[in-house]
Simulated assay, not measured.
Amino acid sequence: MNCQMRQWFYSLLLGITLLLPLSAQASIADITRIYKQTPKLDAFEICTGGGCAEIKQVALTSDEWKVVTAIFEDQSPNNASDAPLERKHIAEAIGALERVVGAKTGTSTDRAGTFDNSRYPGQLDCNDEAINSTTYMRLMYQHGLIKLHAIESMGTRSYFLFGWPHSTAVIHELASGERYAVDSWFYDNGAPATIVPFAAWKSGYFPADSPIIKGRAAAK
Rank of each mutant, 00 (worst) to 15 (best):
M1N: 08
R6E: 14
R6M: 10
R6N: 11
Q7C: 04
W8I: 01
F9G: 04
Y10S: 15
Y10P: 02
L12F: 12
L13N: 10
L13D: 13
L13F: 02
L13H: 06
G15C: 13
I16C: 04
T17Q: 15
T17A: 15
T17F: 15
L18C: 11
L18A: 09
L19M: 11
L20G: 02
L20Y: 00
S23T: 00
A24I: 01
R33N: 05
K40T: 15
L41R: 15
D42L: 09
I46A: 05
I46P: 03
I46F: 09
C47H: 03
C52Q: 07
A53G: 11
K56L: 14
V58T: 01
V58N: 05
L60R: 01
L60E: 05
L60G: 04
T61C: 10
T61D: 10
S62K: 14
E64S: 14
W65Y: 13
K66G: 12
F72D: 00
Q75T: 05
N78D: 15
N79C: 02
N79L: 04
N79I: 04
S81W: 13
A83S: 14
P84R: 01
E86W: 07
A91W: 01
E92N: 03
E92S: 06
A93G: 05
E98P: 01
E98K: 00
V100D: 04
K104D: 05
T105L: 09
S108V: 04
T109H: 13
T109C: 10
D110I: 02
G113W: 07
T114P: 02
F115H: 13
F115R: 14
N117G: 04
N117Y: 03
R119C: 07
Y120V: 14
Y120G: 07
L124R: 13
L124Q: 13
D125R: 01
C126N: 05
N127A: 11
D128L: 08
D128A: 06
D128H: 08
I131G: 12
N132V: 03
S133N: 12
S133Q: 10
T135G: 03
M137F: 06
M137T: 05
R138L: 13
R138Y: 08
L139D: 01
M140L: 13
M140F: 07
M140R: 05
Y141R: 14
L145M: 06
L145W: 02
L148F: 12
L148H: 06
A150N: 12
I151Y: 04
S153F: 09
G155T: 05
T156V: 11
S158M: 04
S158K: 00
Y159A: 12
F160Y: 11
F160E: 09
F160V: 04
L161V: 09
L161D: 04
W164A: 12
W164L: 11
H166K: 09
I171W: 03
E173Q: 12
L174H: 06
E178W: 00
V182R: 01
S184M: 00
W185H: 11
N189I: 08
N189K: 10
N189S: 15
G190D: 02
A191S: 15
T194Y: 03
T194F: 07
V196P: 05
P197S: 03
A200W: 06
F206E: 14
F206Y: 14
F206C: 14
A208N: 13
A208S: 15
I212T: 14
I213T: 15
I213C: 14
K214G: 02
R216Q: 14
R216N: 12
A219W: 15
